[in-house]
Design a binder for these strands. Sequence first.
DNA 1: GCGTTTGAGGACCAGATAGTCCAGGTATTT
DNA 2: AAATACCTGGACTATCTGGTCCTCAAACGC
Lengths: 218, 218
Amino acid sequence: MSDEQVAAPTNRRRISQRGIATRDRILEAANRLMLVRGVNATTLDDIREASQTSKSQLYHHFADKQELVRALVKYRGALVLQRERAGLERLRSFSGLVRWRNALVQANSLNDGKYGCGLGSMALELSDQDEQARSSLSETFAAWERLISDGLHRMRDSGLLRQDADPEKLATGLMAALQGGYLLANAAHNVAPMEVALDMALEHIRSFLVQPSGEPVR
Amino acid sequence: MSDEQVAAPTNRRRISQRGIATRDRILEAANRLMLVRGVNATTLDDIREASQTSKSQLYHHFADKQELVRALVKYRGALVLQRERAGLERLRSFSGLVRWRNALVQANSLNDGKYGCGLGSMALELSDQDEQARSSLSETFAAWERLISDGLHRMRDSGLLRQDADPEKLATGLMAALQGGYLLANAAHNVAPMEVALDMALEHIRSFLVQPSGEPVR
DNA sequence: GCGTTTGAGGACCAGATAGTCCAGGTATTT
DNA sequence: AAATACCTGGACTATCTGGTCCTCAAACGC
């Protein structure tokens, strides 16, 4: 009876609104719990309870915990990229970068620097544990950096940035400052280090402006 | 018979060379294993086996896993600070910073960016799980940054850095770039992002030199 | 030498947790 | 209405793992 299902565990074709909703509820719960407790410290029972589903549903939608985690990596990646796309896809000026910085800082200050970046924390926890999750995360970081570097490219093309500015490297540096800022802020339970780190990166980018405005970053 | 021992589990005074050696062996093993697998994914049995000790010795030297982890946080912190003190306490020039950078990059490139910084990985894993470990890590980061900022202070006092340079902020920014670089390098299994991040931070510091030398960072 | 302290070794226990299975009920689609 | 997909609930297992306990050996002071 369930032979066909077993035969095609991954690419099952049955798609019902209800099923999708449950699957999403599970992912959403896993997302929430694993952000504050970490992946390994969160049990499937926690997720089952938080998502108001049953054990069998967990295993109906995901083969095992590892597959759930991998799905979560993509889920969270999609969330971040969607949020970041909204803030970055029309980036055309330095003040746009400052606004982007302010939004991130403000969001993180709401919980006193705790929890850090959903992607960054998974990266450290999973990189040496699940190669597939690692490469997926790596790709998400790359896509995120591309959103930034695309904006920087636009700024360079429009003559705002000097020609010798390297958008890719600047984006990587900014991303590292962001992730390092998240990490230090998390350790300190204080958003201040994240601000300093981002300001440093922005200042660095500012040094590539064709005509550096007199006012400082903030 | 063992009532007295139970009464004073923490501040025991018995100090034997043999005992210290065993304790250190345990910590050293925990350090090694937890660096690659993470804290939560490492079992006491792994540690027992790797340290060639017995279960009872683990619990003779540490009340429970949490105490072991906390001891490891200090152990690792001491190791890092010792290593960093050697490389930073005589920092007096920009080229000294570059040498410091090169040493870190080279060390991390030996394992293709994997594992990251022992402190940083613990910070993300423990910050929302063990308040005591978190604050201990936070202090270690502060001490590490102080090693850097002390060097920058010396450079400023000697007239190398401009007076408006803020050594504390520069040190925080550099530390964030380092930690973010570790994280991205770990996710990518490639040391390149760490190089870019550190170079950005160094370039930022260089912009505060009184007479910026013409040659780039590297 | 003798008793006490310290360390080694490992058997053992209890609880947590991933994962299985099934019996039956409810929605959705055709 | 029939078939298919989805869901509940919970019992059950195997394993892992933190933690306890007990015995024996070595070291050491008296």
